[in-house]
């Protein structure tokens, strides 16, 4: 991977702040975060629960709006976009992968992927993507007929099929055993390398940080430490 500064900027956040108002209490989830993400960059977000990593991910994905600060995507200001615009932003540019897969249970693996493809403007072929995640032969299975790892790979395929600019993954391996987790990470890295999709992964698992270009450590709503991997490792090489 080439160094970040040599690449164009994908995200640019300045003083990003999010305060949740819970009844009468104000809970700051994110405090004045500055962050630059380059095109095709692979970032891992580490940190304890409540450190603000999910909030940051939601903000980047257009699922939430900041309370203060600015957030730009390829120079486009996302801070003040309305719900409709954010929906279109997610549709065109962002792929999400969750810890609990969240497949639509009434659609087959292929249809889950097609669903995302149908609403995208320039999608990749759904079968091709299923092949990419190694599930071509499971295309016609319903989620209930798939293992956890398989479901997560379908979820990745669903996120990837619309050829997003960034994949946002919230604990993608959290519910999986080691070998399945590695398989999923390999798929993610494969997508990152093959399609040039930026990859931002939240995890509790320190070891996964070794696979990224950059590791951001969060605490109390701030980025408290940043490290760059000059030679990221393959998922199969890391110790779980």
């Amino acid at each position: 991977m080439s160094p970040t500064d040599a690449k164009a900027s994908l995200y640019s956040a300045r003083g990003l702040t999010k305060i949740y108002v819970m009844g009468e209490v104000e809970v700051p989830a994110l405090r004045e975060v500055d962050l630059e993400v380059a095109e095709s960059e692979h970032i891992v977000l580490l940190g304890p629960s409540g450190s603000g990593k999910s909030t940051l991910l939601h903000m980047l994905g257009g699922m939430d709006r900041p309370s203060a600060g600015t957030l730009a995507f390829r120079g486009r200001d996302l801070t003040h976009e309305d719900d409709r615009a954010l929906t279109l932003f997610r549709r065109e540019h962002v792929g999400f992968v969750f810890q609990f897969y969240n497949l639509v249970p009434s659609l087959t693996a292929l249809e889950n992927v097609e669903m995302a493809a149908e609403i995208a403007s320039d999608p990749i072929d759904a079968r091709e993507v299923l092949d990419l995640v190694g599930l071509a032969d499971r295309a016609d299975h319903f989620p209930a007929q798939l293992s956890g790892g398989e479901q997560q790979r379908v979820a990745i395929a669903r996120a990837v099929v619309k050829a997003p600019d960034v994949l946002l993954c919230d604990e993608p391996t959290g519910a999986l055993d080691a070998s399945t987790g590695i398989l999923v990470l390999e798929v993610l890295q494969h997508v990152n390398e093959k399609l040039g999709t930026a990859l931002i992964v939240i995890t509790h698992n320190e070891a996964i940080g070794d696979t990224a270009d950059r590791v951001l450590r969060m605490g109390s709503g701030r980025i408290v430490h940043e490290a760059r991997n000059e030679t990221p490792r393959a998922p199969s090489e890391i110790r779980w």
């Binding site: 994905g61 699922m63 409709r84 929906t87 279109l88 997610r90 549709r91 065109e92 962002v94 999400f96 969750f98 609990f100 969240n102 497949l103 639509v104 249970p105 669903m115 995302a116 609403i119 995208a120 669903r158 996120a159 619309k162």
Partner: peptide, 12 residues
């Protein structure tokens, strides 16, 4: 969850 996922994916 299903409907939420649809929204996240970018369904209106």
């Amino acid at each position: 969850r299903e409907l939420g996922t649809m929204r996240v994916i970018g369904c209106t």
